Simulated assay, not measured.
Amino acid sequence: MPKANVTFQDVGITVSVPAGTRLIEVSEKIGAGITYGCREGECCTCLTEVVSGYEHLAAPSVLEDQVLKDNLAPRHHRLACQAQVLKGDVIVKPA
């Protein structure tokens, strides 16, 4: 199974994860500072900046895309509960 490396800039930890892993799952396991509310992609509490490696994430779902637009999320921000890492190196930090 393909792997990806995710670095959480706020805590300075990099972990290798299987492709398809959501950012929030990794954050919970290592104790990074991404907070969340609903885990359903509706509340925007887990808004996360993708510092680099944005192209290594799965495309946003229709729901996530709409929530990001409704909340005027800056470019290269994703919902950690929805964003799936597919490959490569990704660096994130809580928004």
Rank of each mutant, 00 (worst) to 15 (best):
Thr21Ala: 14
Val26Asp: 03
Ala59Ser: 15
Leu47His: 04
Glu40Gln: 11
Leu63Gly: 05
Cys46His: 06
Tyr36Ile: 06
Gln82Ile: 03
His56Val: 15
His77Glu: 04
Lys93Val: 14
Thr45Tyr: 06
Cys46Asp: 13
Ser61Val: 11
Val26Phe: 08
Pro74Met: 10
Pro2Leu: 10
Leu86Ala: 02
Gln66Trp: 09
Leu79His: 06
Arg78Val: 07
Thr7Ile: 01
Glu55Asn: 10
Leu79Phe: 05
Glu40Phe: 04
Glu64Leu: 03
Ile30Val: 14
Cys81Asn: 06
Thr21Val: 13
Pro60Val: 12
Ile30Pro: 02
Ala83Leu: 07
Val6Lys: 00
Glu64Ser: 07
Ile13Thr: 08
Ser52Ile: 05
Cys43Met: 10
Val17His: 05
Gly41Ala: 04
Val51Gly: 11
Val26Thr: 15
Thr14Gln: 08
Arg78Asp: 02
Ala4Leu: 04
Ile24Glu: 01
Pro60His: 06
Thr14Lys: 04
Ile34Met: 12
Leu68Phe: 07
Asn71Lys: 12
Leu72Asp: 14
Asp89Phe: 09
His77Asn: 12
Pro74Leu: 15
Ile34Ser: 07
Cys44Ser: 15
Ile24Phe: 04
Val11Lys: 14
Pro60Cys: 12
Met1His: 11
Cys44Thr: 10
Lys3Trp: 03
Pro18Thr: 03
Val85Met: 02
Leu23Ile: 12
Glu55Ile: 08
Cys81Lys: 01
Gln66Ser: 13
Tyr36Gly: 06
Tyr54Ser: 09
Ala19Tyr: 04
Leu23Phe: 04
Leu63Thr: 14
Ala83Thr: 09
Cys46Val: 09
Arg78Ser: 06
Arg75Asn: 05
Gly20Val: 00
Gln82Cys: 15
Val26Ile: 13
Pro94Glu: 14
Ser61Lys: 15
His76Arg: 11
Leu57Asp: 00
Ser16Gly: 12
Gly88Met: 08
Gln66Asn: 10
Glu25Thr: 07
Thr14Leu: 01
Thr45Pro: 05
Ala73Val: 10
Val90Glu: 02
Gly88Ile: 09
Thr48Asn: 06
Val26His: 08
Leu72Ile: 08
Arg22Tyr: 00
Asn5Ile: 04
Ile24Lys: 01
Val17Gly: 06
Val11Gln: 03
Gly41Ser: 09
Val92Ala: 03
Thr14Pro: 02
Cys43His: 08
Val51Ile: 11
